Computed example of a mutant assay.
Amino acid sequence: MGLYIETRIRTDPDTLWARSQDPREHQRWDLRFTEIAPLPRTGDDEPDRFRYATRLGPFLTVAGTGTSAGERHRADGERVSALRFASPHPLSLLAEGSGYWRYVPADGGVRFLTGYDYRPRWGRPGRIADRWVFRPLMGWATAWSFDRLRLWCETGTPPERLRLHWLAETALRLLAPAAAALLAPPAAALAVLAAALLLPPSARTPAARRCLRTAPPRTAAPALLHTLPPAAPLPAAAPASPRES
């Protein structure tokens, strides 16, 4: 898989499973999505289907669909879910992809990890933009979201409030050096800048740096992923919102 993110969360497996598998809960902590909604299943043997959307601006939302399946009770004690996703929107750099989540029991909690990859569109320009801009941004957003989920599970602080914590701390780190540059002597201004860059984030502020970003050796996608069909097109019954036009 092209991207790998891992964190350790001090919580019980059922709580973590619910907050990551329920679309209503998932969209609360995952920075990559504005909306995640289940779609009707076409048959009892079909995997779960969902629609996702990401707002890129006040009047632009990019949407796509996905299929997912999970194994909640395994002999090794792990839980696994896998998904395939695709977006037909011409402005979505992400054309289609697949990934998985693993829930590995650990002392006092759960190792929660993901691996995923995707195919960018727009030809060679898209591949360049993906390599240098979009893929690093997606990795950061996934890790930041995992840490927000961790803090939600461990402290009980709602994801919405955690986002406000992060915005406030980010604003402080940006404004303090600017104010010092205008009002303080150069040496003091440099000290404030160094503090803004080097001080670790607050324990109550989500931070991507807390997550592992390199896959351990011999990491492989679960077999469940290979049983999933490709994501289906957006159904006619769920047309794109006016923001997507």
Rank of each mutant, 00 (worst) to 15 (best):
A171G: 09
R150H: 03
G156P: 03
D147C: 02
L174T: 11
G156S: 02
R150A: 04
R161P: 05
W166C: 09
L167C: 08
L164R: 15
T170F: 09
A179L: 15
G156M: 00
T155M: 02
C153Q: 01
E160I: 08
P158E: 08
W152C: 00
L174K: 14
H165G: 08
R148A: 04
L162K: 12
A178H: 11
T170G: 10
W152I: 00
E169T: 12
R173G: 00
L149E: 01
H165Y: 14
L175E: 14
E160L: 12
L149F: 04
L151D: 02
P158T: 10
S145R: 07
T170D: 11
L151V: 09
P159E: 08
L164H: 14
W144T: 10
W166K: 15
L172M: 15
A168H: 05
C153L: 11
W144R: 15
R148V: 06
A179E: 11
L151S: 00
A143H: 04
E160R: 15
E154W: 02
W152V: 04
L164P: 02
T155E: 01
D147P: 02
L164S: 10
E160F: 03
W144M: 13
T157A: 04
A178V: 13
R148T: 04
E169Y: 09
W152M: 03
S145G: 09
W144K: 11
A179Q: 12
R150P: 00
L175I: 15
R173M: 07
L162W: 06
A168T: 14
H165N: 15
L174H: 13
T157R: 05
C153N: 06
L175N: 06
W140Q: 12
C153T: 05
R173V: 09
S145P: 03
A141D: 09
R173A: 01
L167T: 07
A171F: 07
W140E: 09
A176F: 06
R148M: 07
A141K: 07
G156I: 04
T142K: 01
L172D: 02
T157G: 03
L164D: 14
A176Y: 07
A143W: 10
A168Y: 04
G156D: 01
T142I: 08
L175G: 13
L149Q: 01
T170P: 00
E169L: 12
W152H: 01
D147N: 03
W152T: 05
T142P: 02
L172C: 14
R150G: 03
W144I: 06
T155I: 06
P159C: 12
P177A: 13
T155D: 05
G156W: 01
T142A: 14
L172R: 15
T170C: 05
G156A: 00
T170A: 13
S145M: 07
L174R: 15
A168L: 14
T157N: 00
L151I: 10
A179M: 13
A171Y: 07
R161I: 07
A168P: 02
F146K: 05
A176P: 06
P159L: 12
H165W: 11
A141P: 01
L151K: 09
L151E: 06
A178S: 13
